[in-house]
């Protein structure tokens, strides 16, 4: 999901950076508001950021493809912190990974943050909200949020590359062709991220109802 340094053309790199800045800025103000209201959430934001950093850099091998891919954990970050704050956290995480781990790049920071923090985060959070407000089992919604958010991130990565490098070919065809190459590595990974999202969410709710209430998570065990 990390688009490396130098892959994107200047217009695409600039446009994605300009597009993501308002999301990151809004996230900064959301985090500031949360911390002003309740200073105890500061270490929780730090811990979730550290978790996103580790998980999104962790190569998980896929026996299906023989290669490895990164889960994103963006859905659980968006559910716990809110999608705006998750976009900011993603921006910080991807900047550190680009600077010190050769994962992504400075020129592709905007695109990677947009794909993971905005498209992935808002998709995961949206699925969670639909299930939270309906009578459907919440754990199914959480699992779907984790899995679909990952797929969204990889699809958006494919689309960004296609937009930047399509030349005179069809953007849709190029997007699909790239996304299909990701799929064998994602088959089990999305199940893993779905289970992780359900597990962490319910674990916090069951073991730390006080923390869950602080984060706006419904405390009643529904599943």
């Amino acid at each position: 999901m990390h688009i490396s340094e130098g892959i994107l053309t200047l217009p695409v790199a600039a446009a994605t950076t300009v597009a993501v800045v308002p999301f990151v800025a809004k996230g900064v103000s959301e985090i500031k508001k949360k911390v002003d209201e309740d200073p105890a959430v500061k270490p929780i934001i730090g811990l979730v950021s550290a978790a996103v950093f580790v998980i999104s850099a962790l190569p998980i091998p896929s026996p299906v493809s023989g290669s490895s891919a990164h889960p994103t954990a963006i859905a659980i970050a968006a559910i716990l912190l809110g999608p705006w704050a998750a976009a900011t956290v993603t921006g910080i995480v991807l900047m550190l990974q680009a600077l010190f781990m050769a994962h992504g790049g400075i020129s592709s920071w905007g695109a990677n943050t947009l794909n993971m923090g905005v498209f992935g985060g808002f998709t995961g959070y949206g699925i969670y909200l639909v299930f939270k407000r309906s009578n459907l089992p919440l754990w199914v919604g959480l699992a779907l949020a984790g899995a679909v958010a990952d797929l969204t991130v990889y699809f958006a990565t494919s689309a960004t590359m296609a937009v930047a490098l399509h030349g005179d070919r069809s953007i849709i065809d190029m997007t699909i062709a790239t996304f299909v190459l990701f799929l064998p590595s994602l088959v089990l990974l999305i199940v893993l991220d779905g289970l992780f999202t359900v597990g962490l969410f319910n674990f916090i709710r069951e073991r730390r109802p006080d923390l869950a209430a602080r984060l706006g998570i419904p405390v009643r065990a529904e599943s």
């Binding site: 490396s4 930047a164 490098l165």
Partner: peptide
């Protein structure tokens, strides 16, 4: 398998197939 990541096996390979280039990281630690 070499556990080669999709960042290399898909992103970089596909970018090169589509005519893009891959630059070295700004800070190569």
């Amino acid at each position: 398998s070499q556990w080669e990541g999709v960042d290399v096996s898909v992103v970089q390979t596909r970018a090169q197939q589509m005519g893009g280039t891959v630059a070295n990281p700004l800070i190569n630690v």
